[in-house]
Design a binder for these strands. Structure first.
Length: 290
DNA sequence: TTAAATTCCTGTAAGC
DNA sequence: TGCTTACAGGAATTTA
């Protein structure tokens, strides 16, 4: 499922192709995939807009839009103005955002199609429909509670070990539950939570508030290392993840624990255990993670 | 305020 | 082979 590395791969691939394009038409084959505003208003507002930037925040894809004739045109080419209208895409578990040639056959479960002025189609497909599309300014979406106030970006150079330590210390729940909380740290999901806890040799069900500064430092390092390696390998194609071109990633071959319950730990050889934390399957090594 | 439980959804795989 | 059932999980929502 798409987490930070997968979303980062999609956004960085799409960016050079989308920035500068105008959305000339929008079709919603399954309108309820749009969660804000009403589907009709969404279409009216999005059509005619120019995409001026494409970025990632947590697991969200943010496309900044401006009317092409506003401000003498191209005035915000750098993108990122704070009160820009944003087209927001969250992929949920099985969402796919693909840029295709118009002759590409429409795949089943394609819920939205954005027709671009270069003739190509940006298609949103999502069999399980846990994903969603949003449109509005960042402030409006936060206010309407369509998006959470996300925690810091774990791969940001400014994200210090001490900040992770402080965020863990104040929580009275399992370490892994905090990693999965998007308001605590943005972008981490089930795969990279398990992977980084394993690398840091920490039990996922350990109470977050009891971790030492030293343990938090190890987790900080392993979390960043797991995410950066996964980005370098273009993400993990477990379940249905595909990049913007429909291709699989490479990180699934290198996962240490995720999806390997019952199989031997690569470090000690003991079978990996599976437990449930915060409603998610959690795989770890009872010997290596204490 | 925080944490836990519930809900949404369908493809896949296990079990009979 | 074909049917039924359990399971996968991100995050909004509800409950405690």
């Amino acid at each position: 499922m798409p987490e930070l590395p997968e979303v980062e791969t999609i956004v960085s691939d799409l960016r050079p192709h989308l920035v500068g394009r105008i959305i000339v038409r929008c079709e919603l084959n399954f309108p309820t995939i749009v969660r804000h505003p009403e589907p009709e208003e969404f279409i009216d507002a999005v059509v005619g807009q120019r995409i001026v930037s494409a970025r990632r925040r947590g697991k969200y894809i943010l496309l900044a839009l401006t009317p092409p004739d506003s401000w003498g045109g191209g005035g915000e080419a750098a993108g990122g103005a704070a009160n820009n209208l944003l087209l927001v895409v969250h992929l949920g578990m099985t969402g796919q955002l693909r840029l295709v040639d118009p002759v590409t056959p429409l795949e089943k479960h394609t819920h939205a199609v954005f027709f671009l002025d270069d003739g190509r189609h940006l298609r949103y497909r999502d069999p399980r429909r846990f994903g969603r599309l949003l449109l509005g300014t960042e402030e409006a979406l936060l206010l309407a509670k369509k998006m959470p106030r996300l925690g810091p970006e774990p791969i940001d150079p400014g994200f210090a070990a001490d900040e992770l330590y402080r965020r863990l210390r104040k929580r009275r729940t399992a370490l892994k539950a905090v990693l999965l909380d998007q308001r605590a740290i943005a972008g981490v999901g089930n795969i990279y939570a398990d992977e980084s806890l394993h690398k840091a040799r920490l039990r996922p069900d350990r109470m977050a508030g009891t971790v030492s500064r030293k343990s938090a430092q190890r987790l900080h390092e392993s979390l960043r290392e797991s995410l950066r390696t996964a980005i370098a390998n273009r993400g993990s194609s477990v379940d249905t993840y595909r990049d913007a071109w429909g291709e699989i990633g490479g990180q699934q071959e290198k996962l240490l624990v995720y999806g390997r319950a019952g199989e031997p730990c690569f470090t000690c050889g003991r079978p990996l255990s599976a437990i449930r934390i915060a409603g998610r399957t959690t795989v770890f090594c009872r010997r290596c993670q204490r």
